[in-house]
Structure formats: C-alpha cells, structure tokens
C-alpha cells in the first residue's frame, strides 16, 4: 500500500529524469504559437534592419543631393526628400533611435511601475497610500500635453531627455495594474504558506509573487514600448525632439514641414508610417501570445488520448 516513512534502501538509487528546463519549454511554446511567431519575426526583423543599417544603406542618411522630391526609382528605391535625401536610407537608419528609445523608455517605465505598484501593495499601510496617491495624481494628468510641456522646457530634447519624459508620464497605468494583482495575490494561501515555511519577504516577492505576475509584467513592458514609440514619434513629429537626428518621427516632421502630401510625395510619408504600424502590430501580436502561453490552463487542450495520462487519482 503506502511506502513506509522510514527510508528504504531502494530509494537511494532513485534519480530525477532530465526534463527540459522551463525557459526552453517557454521558448518552444512561442515558436509553436503562430501569433507570437509572426510578431517575433516582424520585431526581430526591424532589430536586424537597425543593426545592419550600415550594410543595407551605406552612407550618411542625411546627405543632401540634387535629386529632390524624386519618386521611387531604381537608384532611390523609396524616392527622395525635398532636400534630396534617400528615403530608403532614412527609414533604415531611423529604425535605430526609434527602437532604442522605445526599448529603454519601456524598460524604465516598467521598472517604475513595478517598484511603485508592487512595493506599495506588498508593504501596505502608509507606503501604499502614498504610492497610490502619486499614481492617481499622475494618471489624471493627460500624458501627451505634459510630455509636450516637459519636452519644450527641455528644449529640443535629446535621447536621454526624451526617455526621461516618456518614463515620467508612462508609469502610473502599469503601477495600478500591478498593484491590484499584488493585492490579490498577497492574501492567497500559498503566500501565507511560503511565509510559514520561513520564506523571507524578498523571497516571497521574488519566488511566489513575480512568477504569477510575469505575463502581466511582460505584457506591460511590451505595451509600454508601444506607448514609448508612439510618444517619441509624436514628440518628434511636433518638432519637440532633436529634429536633426534621422528617425521615423523626424522624417514625418520634415515631410509635414515641406508639405510632402501637397506635392504628392507619398513615398516620403508612407514608409515611416508603415514601419511604425508594423512595429506596433508586432508587439501587440507578441503580447497576445504571451497571454495564451502564460495561462497553461487556457491553451493546453491535451491532444486526443493524452488526457490526464499521468494522473492516477489519490
């Protein structure tokens, strides 16, 4: 019937079978999930494009030539700007600042959300009150106008200033979501159980709470990148960033400035627009697939005949 509680010699030889580590299985799940795969391929494609810019479009993208407002030709694949710059070259090089600012601002914003949201909710009391008050204040301040004011104040914001402005206005939404999730988890029995086995506070946050929130945190991170890219493009389009750097936002700014649309120069406006939409769409797709993967109950509809194969009842 049952194994006696005293150790029997046979147990000593028992060893664990090797199983693929959790992280490997997660990546495999991503590849299997078509939505996620498409998103990752598009996003990674843009990252590669940015990295390989010197190879794909050699030369300075800001170089001025005599061929102004040229429609797409064999030489200028995507035509030229009013200053005779190659749009192809600008789109490729413009990937770099856009993604870098999006990624760093997204990471910083998420970190702020975690510290303020999780920290406040887990500790409770006055700390939570203060954290909630700040989130509430920041959440009612309209983001874009505040960003415009801050960016104007910082006067043609450089990369660092741009990242700080986006992070300062972007954190409260994530903080509130993570706070409510922390509050819901904190009172659960398994958190109590971990405390009763002697787990430290940091151990509980790290080992019991975070794994349950990781999909939320990653989803939050990805949407923050989308938000950051959108915010960055808007600021540059409004001429509040550094208009002399080549990025998708500044391309749109100059296109607007030279009234590209009035001259019928669609090739100047549509490529950066499509790129922004593609990056945003790719992140949204990855986000959706994370939700599917992180909730194993939702996706693991077992294949026929494998239902509860290991279950023996008790």
């Amino acid at each position: 019937m049952m194994t006696p509680f005293t150790a029997s010699p046979g147990d000593e030889g028992e060893a664990l079978p090797s199983v693929k580590p959790r992280s490997a299985r997660t990546w495999l799940a991503f590849v299997r999930n078509r939505t996620g795969l498409i998103g990752i391929v598009i996003f990674v494609g843009f990252v590669v494009l940015g990295l390989l810019a010197p190879v794909i479009a050699p030369g300075n993208p800001a170089t001025i030539t005599m061929h102004i407002m040229s429609p797409p030709t064999a030489h200028y694949w995507l035509g030229t700007t009013a200053e005779g710059q190659s749009v192809w070259s600008q789109v490729i090089w413009g990937t770099r600042p856009t993604l870098v600012i999006g990624f760093i601002a997204g990471a910083l914003t998420t970190a702020l959300s975690i510290i303020i949201g999780v920290g406040g909710a887990y500790n409770g009391g006055a700390l939570d009150d203060v954290a909630t008050m700040f989130s509430n204040i920041f959440i009612v301040i309209p983001g874009i106008p505040l960003m415009i004011v801050l960016a104007t104040y910082l006067h043609h914001a450089g990369t660092v200033a741009m990242i700080l402005v986006i992070s300062a206005t972007g954190w409260p939404f994530g903080a509130r979501v993570l706070r409510s999730q922390t509050l819901a988890l904190r009172k659960r029995d398994f958190v109590q159980a971990a405390r009763l086995t002697g787990e430290s506070t940091w151990g509980i946050v790290q080992r019991e709470l975070f794994p349950n929130m990781i999909s939320l945190i990653v989803a939050n991170f990805l949407s923050t990148i989308m938000y950051a890219i959108g915010a960055e493009v808007s600021l540059q389009f409004l001429g509040l960033g550094n208009i002399n750097t080549v990025s998708w936002g500044s391309m749109l700014y100059w296109a607007g400035n030279y009234q590209a649309l009035a001259f019928g120069a669609w090739w100047w406006i549509i490529p950066p627009g499509i790129c922004i939409a593609l990056v945003g769409g790719a992140l949204a797709l990855v986000n959706r697939s994370i939700d599917e993967i992180a909730n194993p109950q939702l996706t693991s509809a077992p294949k026929r005949g494998r239902l509860h194969r290991g279950g023996t009842g008790s």
């Binding site: 029995d189 398994f190 159980a193 971990a194 349950n212």
Partner: peptide, 9 residues
C-alpha cells in the same frame, strides 16, 4: 484548501 495553498507556477 489545496487549490489555494499551492502556488500555481
């Protein structure tokens, strides 16, 4: 409640 006392992850 064994449904609440084990961490699902």
């Amino acid at each position: 409640d064994p449904y609440a006392s084990l961490n699902p992850v």
